[in-house]
Design a protein around this nucleic acid. Sequence first.
DNA 1: CGATAATATTACTCGTCAGTAATATGTTTC
DNA 2: GAAACATATTACTGACGAGTAATATTATCG
Lengths: 203, 203
Amino acid sequence: MTDERLDAAAREDSATKGEMTRARLRRAATNVFARNGYHATKVSDIVAAAGVTQPTFYIYCESKEAAYEALVAAFRDNLRQITLTNLIDPAIPQAELETRVAQSFHRFLDFMAQDRALTEIGFFQPPGCSQTKALMVDWVAANIAQEQAGGVFRADIPAAHIARMLVGLLDQMGRMNTDAAGRGELARHCARLFCGGVGMRTG
Amino acid sequence: MTDERLDAAAREDSATKGEMTRARLRRAATNVFARNGYHATKVSDIVAAAGVTQPTFYIYCESKEAAYEALVAAFRDNLRQITLTNLIDPAIPQAELETRVAQSFHRFLDFMAQDRALTEIGFFQPPGCSQTKALMVDWVAANIAQEQAGGVFRADIPAAHIARMLVGLLDQMGRMNTDAAGRGELARHCARLFCGGVGMRTG
DNA sequence: CGATAATATTACTCGTCAGTAATATGTTTC
DNA sequence: GAAACATATTACTGACGAGTAATATTATCG
């Protein structure tokens, strides 16, 4: 690839025909993988959805597997970014905790909804999802441990377990297909249970 | 199939050669489907694991898909049984709530661990898992609504959401491969968060 | 033993699917 | 306008995998 092409790719404007095709293939692959999962999608489905022929696919992708891995990796990078910038401040006044946690859930849900198909690939469906969730548990657990050390979260549940449970909540909530307002409500409900539990607090 | 054969299948003892083969195929199918998922498992893998040849598979199973569906259905039936007999009594003293919820989680985790491979098929991996979880959410939500009506659970989170979150917790916890003691601990941690949340209860 | 049913095997078919060689069609640059 | 490059296509291959027909082996019982 020559310098001019790299420039064209870097500048968002004036996409070359090739970049257009690449983008359409990527979108098509994302949608088809999301709908059918890795094993059940055929390259022929992807190229049909993209409106190109099969060899064209292999101009832009080394293999079906490489195309899939690239999508998983892209989602993973985005999720890591979101997770690390989405951590609860270790020094939150207890009173604000639930609100802050709700905001955090809300950002996660928005992120997932923003490209639902990619989320399906990277977070919901195997084989990509398992490693993604394992990584996320680690990222989150580190933060939870800090909260516990700071006295914000109770310390009688191991951070790793809380992190797993949080990911479990997010997994189930993320699968609900709601609009922006619905996501706000979901996030508040998550935060309510996550912070205060289901009990009536009468004891 | 003659009456004698049905009798032999009903009585657990004196399994005929055919019933032995059926059982070995079922075990093999369970393990291979669990390891590789539906689409990535080949009938040839199953029969190799079972130590029989391919046509033998088709003596006992109508198709690869039918074999898979039968396993999913079997898990689903068991799960339904466990779920319906595992509900929290609507009139629990608040003080005992967490203990009772922990017992409930414990029974679920034991059930999942008891045949881990079947659980993988019916609960963890698509395509079987999605319908299973949807059903379980319904079963659980009905009970949660009762708890809310009885004043045991807080009512400011919709029962359906609580049910989904509970399934999310169970999903993540069930994936951890722990021994019986570990499951007891996990169950207590789940119950602790589910009933009381992560907050320090200082407010 | 010899007949009958049950159980399993060898040796295939037919379709599908990932991936490719050879070739054609635009598109920039001089 | 021709050389050089980028982009896409037609027409394949080779392997694999679900499912089967015909046949062999093993147990059961009169």
